[in-house]
Design a protein around this nucleic acid. Structure first.
Lengths: 152, 152
DNA sequence: TCTGAAAAGGAGGGAGT
DNA sequence: ACTCCCTCCTTTTCAGA
């Protein structure tokens, strides 16, 4: 991983469908070398995958909420972690220090949809408390952080 | 937007670099039609962009934290929203209901890096209180929610 | 809105430095 | 590890249904 790799990652972060040839122009490297470096970052796992960013509102998913969750006991952790994976409306989940144990990001199409997720989480026996916040506005929501390219 | 569009979005969510020809095989549609539908979703803004998912640990960004922020007064909102955009370590920021006004996700390479962001946020005059939580594990972190394809 | 064909352009492998 | 070249595959455009 050198500066050239970071430049490539920076290009792909902006647009993952960029052709290798346009990246090669931007960073002054041959097309084959660009492809070779991308393949290496893919196989080493630095690049985990490529995905789309969609406009959730245009897909009808306008309701976003943050839910904090506390478990009764750490023994429920593994089961809760698995449970989370089975609900598509729960798009993010972090296990963290503090009063609560988890923070969840929930995206649904309506208050009814949110209620469903709310019952889904509160219905699990290991949950002792939750606190839900409505997201009024998403100011930033980036996927990846690419280290800054150092000047040579 | 019909079921075919959702299927295409589903394919691209899994791998945004899929070729139109492989999508066309998967959903039984001609290559041209697939490309046409993708172009329409791009220009209508349903697809906002394509990006990579990277392994933050392999890039040295191992420290993830959640910071809750309260402002002294709503008048600081706009300025705070702008401030957030200027810091690359702040990767997400939601304005929400509840005791705090904002929740931030911070990704850095070290405790020192986190401290820098902490000072950056607390140093802003409009901030009245913060609470920081260390993320011990990321259980889920998806970018997009694609509505389920209904059976015909 | 779809298909299918033809033209243009990119991907990826191999030889050489 | 990079470059150049060559072949194959993909994209893109256009005519027609």
């Amino acid at each position: 991983m050198d500066n050239i790799d970071y430049k490539i990652l920076g290009c792909l972060k902006k647009n993952a469908r960029l052709t290798a040839s346009s990246i090669s122009e931007e960073i002054n490297l041959s097309v084959s070398a660009v492809i070779e470096r991308i393949r290496k970052m893919e196989s080493s796992g630095v690049i985990k995958g490529y995905t789309i960013e969609v406009d959730q509102k245009k897909l009808g998913n306008e309701m976003v909420a943050i839910m904090e969750v506390r478990l009764k006991h750490p023994k429920y952790y593994d089961e809760f972690a698995q449970l989370i994976q089975t609900n598509d409306s729960i798009v993010a989940c972090f296990y963290m220090t503090g009063d609560f144990d988890f923070i969840l990001k929930i995206v649904t199409d309506s208050a009814a949809g949110l209620d469903e997720v709310y019952r889904f989480v509160k219905g699990y026996e290991g949950v002792s408390a939750t606190e839900t916040h409505f997201v009024l506005k998403t100011l930033k929501d980036e996927v990846s952080v690419i280290p800054e390219v150092k000047k040579q």
